[in-house]
């Protein structure tokens, strides 16, 4: 493996030859990589768009197209190259007629074993969160994954109040996770008994994201409602959506609940597990 294994008697190769060979190999490799990159570019982009749409449509039913925006102190721009400092990425969903169906953004917080990332839908009319989906998490299967199987928990997000306070600087009432059965206000999330840590992570992620996003967003809502024509597909390599290259994937690198219960169709199996979840009350 290392130089030590080379017998000392072996005549050494002139550097020129070494550089020549390395150059040759590097050229071959470069060609291979670039070919592969160019060749897969479109397919990858299509895949990513599909994945994003699937995720957003899940939380905003009835939508048929998605556009990405970046909301910052300077206003709302179509997503371009990366997200500038202090800005938040936002997905706007439109129906077939082209009118705004809803907005979606990502929230993330440290859960039981790793970061829990959720995509939440925001309805500007109701000033409420109207649905969530899990982007990635590594919570304990059977407990943590109730956040997308427990019907009672998901009910919290049918109309979770995120009205802004009078000064438009923050939420009127911070989104709060309360103990199971303790929900009294529309801005509270009723935790799942036994999966409190994960629930708290969801609440925390949404709260942090919303506290940051909404004050920035509201002044510019009109811009989004207009459905300002943006480029049909953002450049995938520059700003991959949802699965921002590897984010979901890397974090779920090892044993991940996601593979057994892929988050893409999170709500479909809710029914079968809901009763069980209740039973696990602990």
């Amino acid at each position: 493996m290392n130089a030590a294994s080379v017998p000392p008697s072996q005549p050494s190769t002139p550097s020129a030859a070494m550089i020549r060979t390395l150059g040759l190999v590097a050229t071959v490799c470069g060609i291979l990589i670039v070919t592969a990159y160019e060749g897969t570019l479109e397919a990858v982009a299509a895949n990513k768009k599909l994945a994003l749409e699937r995720a957003v449509f899940k939380v905003i039913p009835g939508a048929s197209s998605v556009k990405e925006f970046v909301v910052g102190p300077t206003g709302v721009q179509p997503a371009g190259n990366g997200v500038p400092e202090g800005a938040v990425k936002l997905y706007a969903a439109y129906d077939q007629a082209g009118s705004l169906k809803g907005l979606a953004a990502e929230g993330a917080a440290k859960g039981y074993s790793d970061t829990v990332r959720v995509l939440y839908a925001y309805d500007p009319e109701k000033q409420a969160i109207t649905g969530i989906g899990v982007v990635s998490m590594r919570e304990t299967p059977g407990i943590g994954d109730k956040i997308y199987t427990d019907a009672a928990f998901l009910k919290n997000f049918e109309a979770l109040d995120v009205t802004l306070s009078a000064d438009l600087k923050s939420l009127a009432n911070a989104v709060k996770v309360v103990k199971h059965g303790g929900k009294q206000n529309p801005w509270e999330i009723d935790a799942i008994a036994g999966a409190t840590v994960t629930c708290k992570a969801v609440g925390k992620g949404i709260n942090e994201s919303a506290q940051k996003l909404l004050p920035l967003l509201l002044p510019h809502l009109d811009k989004l409602k207009a459905g300002e024509p943006a480029r049909p597909t953002p450049h995938p390599a520059a700003s991959p959506p949802l699965s921002k290259r590897g984010q979901g994937g890397f974090d779920s690198g090892s044993a991940s609940s996601q593979r057994l219960n892929p988050p893409q169709p999170p709500f479909e199996k809710g029914g079968s597990r809901a009763s069980h979840a209740e039973g696990a009350a602990s």
Binding site: R245, G246, Q247, G249, F250, D251, G253
Partner: peptide, 8 residues
């Protein structure tokens, strides 16, 4: 190296 990149 890869994870720190992935996690920004």
């Amino acid at each position: 190296a890869l994870f720190q990149t992935a996690r920004d």
